[in-house]
């Protein structure tokens, strides 16, 4: 039951983009282990700027 709830929660986080920073950290550790990753604040600021610079919404 607990594991199932945890799974549902993970899906909700992934759908809403709540886990973006964790995914970035995981990717960073895998691919660029040496350099230090962006801070949470810095990453989220850049991501927001990028995501809302193009066509993001329709009619």
């Amino acid at each position: 039951m607990r594991a199932r709830l945890h799974r549902v929660w993970s899906w909700i986080r992934a759908l809403s983009g709540d886990d973006a920073y964790e995914r970035y950290l995981a990717h960073h550790a895998r691919c660029h282990g040496r350099d230090s990753p962006l801070s949470r604040r810095e990453f989220c600021a850049r991501e927001q700027e990028r995501r809302w610079s193009g066509v993001s919404r329709c009619c």
């Binding site: 899906w11 992934a14 759908l15 970035y24 990717h27 993001s56 919404r57 329709c58």
Partner: peptide, 22 residues
Amino acid sequence: GRDFVPTHRAIVFGHHFAAIAG
């Protein structure tokens, strides 16, 4: 790890639907 990220198809479906639904 940012805009190019392999994502589960159900999640992509959710994002894409949210974007096209107006």
